[in-house]
Design a protein around this nucleic acid. Sequence first.
DNA 1: ATATTGTCTATAATGTCTGTAGACAAAGTC
DNA 2: GACTTTGTCTACAGACATTATAGACAATAT
Lengths: 133, 133
Amino acid sequence: MKLTTKSEYSILALVYLARHGVKSYVKIEDICEEYDISKKYLETLLATLKRNQFVLTKRGAAGGYKLSKSADKICLADIIRLMDGALAPTDSVSEYFYSDTPLLKEKKILKEFKEIRDYIADKMERLTLAELI
Amino acid sequence: MKLTTKSEYSILALVYLARHGVKSYVKIEDICEEYDISKKYLETLLATLKRNQFVLTKRGAAGGYKLSKSADKICLADIIRLMDGALAPTDSVSEYFYSDTPLLKEKKILKEFKEIRDYIADKMERLTLAELI
DNA sequence: ATATTGTCTATAATGTCTGTAGACAAAGTC
DNA sequence: GACTTTGTCTACAGACATTATAGACAATAT
């Protein structure tokens, strides 16, 4: 698990949208002003979120972004996995990668790292945008 | 917390040394063969470990590396912090960095990430090389 | 028409990761 | 004292990720 600005800004933007409701669209600029982040950069992040059905968009005046589903259906685990990859502290213990690393020789170390992975995954899967509004 | 090979290889090397005891020195090549890792690369990692008093060295024939203290006095938290930095999932919730990120505006998100940091830090501080032999 | 908004593709500065190269220094062996 | 065996030090470098920026284009509302 390595949280970069990709996950961070994505979570912030989605929380902002969750707070705003799904009745109308929110301009990207409103989000950028709220958190003081780069507009062009957030555009590229939101494009990824759109391709993966987290948000809906509308162009033109009165256009913008909104959540594609209700806030309690979007968990942080999904957002982080999309933007920054697996939640495990190292690929050696990720469910999603096969890796042949030297760490595999040390079962006790693996066990500890897997416990960390499970803790994080469980926590982030249960945490939804609804709880962060 | 982003575990790279720096932490991984360092932990492996130290576990290997812990297993070997402190009576004699272990050649770097023995460690590299055991885990199939680059010798030149491990040299640079061990240099850092030496500078930070994790290992003692001796040059020349019959030289090599050994732990500088008993295995139950070396915890993974210290190794990881040295090699890969803070244990927190993001700098925003690290005890060791001051950072002014947009995430600071969202207290509920911060709280969750801090819980992850605390879980990892507590676990890694209590886990010593002695338990991994 | 025009202004407003998102879309798409390309580019780029900077830093990190994962090493490699090679000369040098010290310790033991014969 | 010569030689072999080990660690030490400094520099470099390719690949990749991070964090954006630029600019032309497409759609929508008024």
